[in-house]
Amino acid sequence: MDIFILQLINGLSLGSIYALVALGYSMVYGIVKLINFAHGDIIMVSCFTMYTAMEIAGLPLLVSIPLTLILTAVLGIIIEKLAYDRLISKGVERISLLITAIGVSIFLQSTFQLIFKADSLRYQAFLPSKTISLFGIEPSLKSVVTIIVSLVLMLALTLFVKLTKVGKAMRAASEDASAAKLMGINTSNVVAFTFAIGSLLAAVAGILYFESYPRIEPYMGGMLGLKAFVAAVIGGIGSIPGAMAGGLILGVAEAMTVSIGLSSYSDAVVFGILIIMLVLKPSGLFGKNIREKV
């Protein structure tokens, strides 16, 4: 039983990282119907920023973390303004946005490969690798910190979207962009802001993930980003609680698969859940029925 709970905690830890990344996919999709395939690479950029700040510039941890978060959020805005903004305001086909996103992804990967070379770099974890005692079980400190930080951020995001004026504008733009414009909402700024929040959450996810898996290389965003995207689809893309739930489900499923000794099948389980979901409820756990807008 203890082993089960321990694995559950590991799963929730991994799942909360998927959830943080999935939120970025889902919120952006909710507003501009764009699957931002460069989102996974944002994680990679945040890790290299963290690496540069800590290992190359030698900055202290308490400077490196905020610096990484801010730079990553700003990068999100820059990408949106340079690559997507004009396409969105021209109302181009969705496929053009998607191809642009793939282009941004390749650009980021290649740029970082050019600067840092293709070999993986070791990254000095800052949290000690020890376990803590919690109600008679001994989970790793890293897992517990990851879960707590993620939950706090998810709660903060939920309250932000529910209660603040900007958050309400995000919901309005997500539901009906034209009507939101008629309210005087500058939807282009709302989209840029959504990219900033999504990138910030991805940066947090990146920093937490590479506490446990401290090797970074320019293509590392691919698989993590893909799994988070799967989490967003399982939860119902466009839905904030859906992204959270989808992430946690995937993380726990993956950890459980590993714990029963089938670790080489963990990716198969993740994508298997996706296939089952797409057959049973294509709109996802929290997804709404797709309604055509006039």
Partner: peptide, 28 residues
Amino acid sequence: MAAHNVTKLGLSHVPEGRHVFSEMTVLE
């Protein structure tokens, strides 16, 4: 002029088909 700036000038548009934000409350 962009739509959101037109609204700021004091011209409100009630679109065909109402387009209320159905997932938001009446007050919101």
